[in-house]
Simulated scan of single mutants.
Amino acid sequence: MDSAGALAASIYTMSAGRLGATTAAVLGLIGAVVAGLALTRPTGRFGIEKGRWGAIVALSAGPVAMALGGLVTATSEGGLGTGNGLGGAIVALVVGLIATALGGLALTRSRRTAPAHGGPR
């Protein structure tokens, strides 16, 4: 068996790289969805705080997804298609970056629309 065959994982094997990449991608996707909701509905049923909390969640989930995706990228052996989670880790990096950018935009927008006098929310 050649070295590429030894590095390749089975289709049904859930390796540590695949699990880490999947977790990171799902976390980044959750952050991106929450940031999108915070941008589209900053003042909902619960007032302005909903938009701010959504931005904070996205700004927390995005960098964690990028860090975990970077860790899987740095430690994966082999290339794309070997089953070590490299493809999922790259997706997690991109989705985490999108979540961070949208979260920052939502936080900036929620600060602009926040009441300055501290009145009822």
Rank of each mutant, 00 (worst) to 15 (best):
A6T: 04
I98F: 05
T82K: 06
V95F: 07
I30M: 15
E77A: 11
V95Y: 00
A8E: 00
L105Y: 14
V91G: 00
L107H: 10
T113S: 13
V72C: 02
T22I: 15
G54A: 02
G20L: 11
M1I: 12
V91S: 00
A58H: 02
K50S: 12
L68F: 07
R109C: 13
S110W: 03
A21T: 06
I90D: 08
G31Y: 08
Y12F: 08
P115L: 14
A101K: 10
N84P: 00
E77I: 05
A4Q: 15
R111K: 15
R121L: 07
G36F: 03
R121S: 03
M1C: 11
L68W: 13
A65Q: 13
G44Y: 12
L86M: 06
R112Y: 07
S15L: 01
T40S: 08
G119Y: 14
L39N: 12
G5S: 01
R45K: 10
I11F: 12
L86I: 01
G118S: 02
M1H: 09
G118W: 09
D2Y: 02
V33E: 08
G36E: 01
A116F: 14
W53Q: 07
V34T: 06
V33H: 01
V26S: 02
F46K: 15
A21W: 01
V91T: 13
G20T: 05
N84W: 04
L68T: 10
I30F: 08
L7C: 04
A61K: 04
G70L: 03
A89I: 06
H117K: 09
P42F: 03
I56A: 08
G54P: 05
S60K: 15
G96L: 01
A4Y: 15
R52G: 07
L93M: 15
K50M: 10
R111Y: 12
I56F: 13
T82W: 13
L107F: 13
M66R: 12
G104V: 05
R121A: 11
A106L: 01
A9F: 00
